[in-house]
Design a protein around this nucleic acid. Structure first.
Lengths: 152, 152
DNA sequence: CGCCATTCAATTGCGCGCAATTAAATTGTG
DNA sequence: CACAATTTAATTGCGCGCAATTGAATGGCG
């Protein structure tokens, strides 16, 4: 344990924070053309995979809660990309479904990953390795977090 | 280029986004004890290294602009951790300096990196490798971004 | 020197993230 | 069945991030 641990550039967390914001700046002009923000794009990715999801499932997939997702989905709805409605079997749940417009937006998003990959200047295998390492880190952090929450 | 590129879990960007938010959730209870948010903590790290910085230098270090930093510094000032003032040689610049209270807060922050390291469940060498990879990614993204901005 | 361009910070507006609260529907239990 | 506990969303409030605008100080150039 040394003082160097408190140096900004020695912190994994700052490296994550910086890389995350920089990569979102690469996405921004591409997503602007689709009229989406980055979190909205993530929601659309889930919908393009599944067609229909509940808000709760969306939250589990993205690690986000209703405080973030409710207003976000409301904006997607206002943009005509999704419809929402309570589930008949359980009226607590909200189901979110793609509209035709929402589904067709996927075509215009198709070339985004390639453009991003280009900006990273990385080999595909390095990207995959980094993604895998980050996924494992996130999983153990999620575990630590729920363990700490349970201890309270 | 296949459709799988549009799958959420195949995106490096989502792995970054998720890991960043999860690690900040580990920081939160620790920083709550110091009365800091995570971005405020980053600013304090820079100040603990340098003692005094201008807003511009702070922005260069953290990749943040005055729209984010001005109100953030105002809150640190309200908390009695820093003082601010215009530089005599150039009245456009704002200099931010630690107060005694701000400097002494460092003692209470000293054990945070170790606690975070613990939560990651990673070996130190793996953490360093990941941090290095993220730094390189961020650097090439920053380069792509300025290149694209210049093209406009 | 006079004037225009540049630099630097502050402000405004908007969309997240997230904690905390509220409200409604459902489930579990006596 | 009645009633308490749980689940699910929506809302409120606050602090970022970031684009865009504004205003003041400085630098450059004729």
């Amino acid at each position: 344990m040394s003082d160097s641990d408190l140096h900004l550039r020695n912190q994994l967390c700052f490296a994550l924070y910086r890389a995350t914001r920089l990569i979102q700046q690469i996405y921004r002009p591409l997503l602007d053309e689709l009229g989406l923000t980055y979190p909205q794009y993530l929601v659309m990715l889930v919908l393009w995979e599944r067609g229909t999801v509940t808000l709760k499932e969306l939250g589990a997939e993205l690690d986000l809660d209703s405080g973030t997702l409710s207003p976000l989905v409301k904006r997607l709805k206002a943009a005509g990309l999704v419809t929402t409605g309570r589930r008949a079997e359980d009226e607590r749940s909200v189901e979110i479904a793609l509209t035709g417009k929402g589904r067709s937006l996927r075509e215009r998003a198709r070339d985004i990953p390639a453009k991003i990959g280009c900006a990273t200047q990385m080999q595909l295998e390095d990207i995959v390795a980094l993604r895998t390492a980050l996924g494992e880190l996130a999983d153990s952090l999620a575990e630590s977090h729920t363990a700490m929450a349970a201890a309270r």
